[in-house]
């Protein structure tokens, strides 16, 4: 077989043909499936936001979202307002949940003013403020949604990741980790402190809600640090908004 296929011309032609076939195939799949994929992503965002404010179908141990076909109605029912905060300007925007946090972070680096989405939800007479966060874990991106009350006490959290280690960092999206955040304070003595994922707080049941610490996942130090960092840096940007809530 090493006669015909060794010539340079054949190699070049083969490579060109291969590029065409593969490129066409991939482009076809990508463009044909893009609308469905985007729709799935949109639904997931709504599910995540609702999950953070405690609207979900959780059973004893696992995290279960509002089902796909109901989510649009449920979202409209519970999320009363969607805000976009830009500096000191706050505007309402019914599509704020579609803002891509990653893009905002990059454009902020280029000197543009960051657009911060914030979703206001009402459930059982309580008001929730839900903010998206995004950061880096060990391997790739991690992100989540944190629901807070007007005093910046966490009411619920949802975390997700692109490719953290299964069984270790990937556990940030498990109930035992996410539920630990409920009731935890983000403020300390009137100033913003964030929540640190700590290995040394000796509080595995997380009974102390005002220590600004949550028990870490064993073996997932770097992912845990990533979660601490994204909570600190991203939610800090909302502090001034929460301050205006109080003065009004």
């Amino acid at each position: 077989m090493s006669k015909r296929t060794d010539s340079n011309l054949y190699t070049v032609l083969f490579a060109a043909g291969m590029v065409l076939v593969v490129g066409a195939l991939l482009a076809f799949f990508a463009s044909a499936l893009k609308p469905t994929i985007n729709e799935n992503k949109r639904i997931e965002k709504q599910q995540n936001i609702l999950y953070a404010m405690g609207v979900n179908e959780n059973d004893e141990t696992s995290a279960i979202f509002v089902s796909k076909d109901k989510v649009a109605d449920v979202f409209a029912k519970y999320i009363t307002k969607q805000l976009v905060i830009q500096g000191s300007k706050v505007t309402e925007d019914a599509k704020a949940y579609l803002i891509d946090v990653k893009k905002e972070q990059t454009s902020a680096k280029e000197g543009n003013e960051r657009r911060l989405p914030l979703f206001v939800g009402e459930k059982d007479g309580k008001t929730f403020y839900i903010a998206p966060i995004r950061g880096k874990g060990l391997w790739d991106a991690i992100w989540g949604y944190v629901a807070m009350d007007a005093d910046m006490i966490v009411q619920g959290a949802y975390f997700d990741h692109k490719g953290e280690t299964a069984g270790l960092g990937a556990n940030i999206k498990q109930r035992f980790f996410m539920d630990d955040f409920i009731g935890e304070h983000l403020m300390k003595d009137g100033s913003f402190k964030g929540i640190t994922i700590s290995k040394s707080n000796n509080d595995p049941k997380n009974e102390d809600k005002t220590d600004n610490e949550v028990d870490a996942i064993a073996g997932a130090t770097i992912t845990g640090d990533g979660v601490s960092a994204m909570i600190k840096s991203e939610l800090k940007k909302y502090v001034s908004f929460f301050n205006t809530l109080k003065t009004n």
Binding site: M1, T5, T11, F14, A15, L25
Partner: peptide, 20 residues
Amino acid sequence: MRNIIPSKIRIIVQLIVVAT
């Protein structure tokens, strides 16, 4: 494809087949 893959670029071809 074994009889039509040019031996000089077989590694690229193999990798691209898996990746695709």
